[in-house]
C-alpha cells in the first residue's frame, strides 16, 4: 500500500473517524510530509467519510497547513508590528541573501521554504521566527546567518 495511504489509515485508527478527528489527522500528515497533497486530502476524506471538498475547505483555512510542496525546513518570520519595528526586514534580507530565494519560495534542493507569518507571540524578544516548530528570537542578520548555517550543516551530515 502507498505509504501515505497507510499513514492516513493508521492516523484514522488512532484519532477516530469522526469529523473532530479531521484536524489532528491533517496536522499529523503535515508533520510528516510538511504539506497536505491533493492525494492526502482525498485519502483523508475517504477514511473520515466526508466529501474531499470539505477536507480541502478546512485545510486551506489554516495557515500552518500547506497545500503546496514545501522544503524540509519551513522558515516563518514574524511580520507583525513589534518585529517589524525591531528590524525584521534586515533579518529577512539576510535570509533571502543567504538562501537565494524570495518570500514564498523554496530552495532548489528542497531544504528551505521562506514565509512571513503573523504575530508569533515573542514581541518582547523581537524580531522572531520559527523554523518548523522551533522558535528563534532577538534575531539580527549575523545571528540568523549562524542559525541557518547550523541547519545547513545538519543536512550535509545526513
Amino acid at each position: 500500500m502507498n505509504p501515505i495511504r497507510s499513514l492516513i489509515k493508521e492516523l484514522a485508527e488512532k484519532h477516530g473517524r469522526r469529523r473532530e478527528s479531521l484536524l489532528p489527522i491533517m496536522l499529523a500528515v503535515v508533520e510528516r510530509e510538511k504539506y497536505l497533497s491533493e492525494y492526502s486530502m482525498v485519502e483523508i476524506a475517504r477514511e473520515v467519510d466526508i466529501p474531499a471538498s470539505e477536507v480541502y475547505g478546512t485545510a486551506t483555512f489554516y495557515s500552518f497547513i500547506e497545500t503546496k510542496p514545501t522544503g524540509q525546513y519551513i522558515i516563518r518570520i514574524c511580520k507583525t508590528i513589534t518585529c517589524s519595528m525591531k528590524g525584521k526586514n534586515q533579518v529577512l534580507f539576510a535570509i533571502q541573501d543567504m538562501l537565494k530565494i524570495k518570500l514564498g519560495e523554496t530552495t532548489p534542493d528542497k531544504r528551505f521554504t521562506l514565509m512571513e507569518t503573523n504575530c508569533l507571540g515573542w514581541c518582547h524578544k523581537a524580531p522572531a521566527m520559527m523554523i518548523n516548530n522551533d522558535v528563534y528570537t532577538e534575531l539580527t542578520p549575523e545571528k540568523v546567518r549562524d542559525i541557518l548555517s547550523g541547519y545547513m550543516k545538519i543536512n550535509e551530515l545526513n
Binding site: Y62, S63, I65
Partner: peptide
C-alpha cells in the same frame, strides 16, 4: 491538548 494551526 488540541492543537490549533495558525488562525487568529
Amino acid at each position: 491538548i488540541f492543537m490549533g494551526s495558525g488562525a487568529y
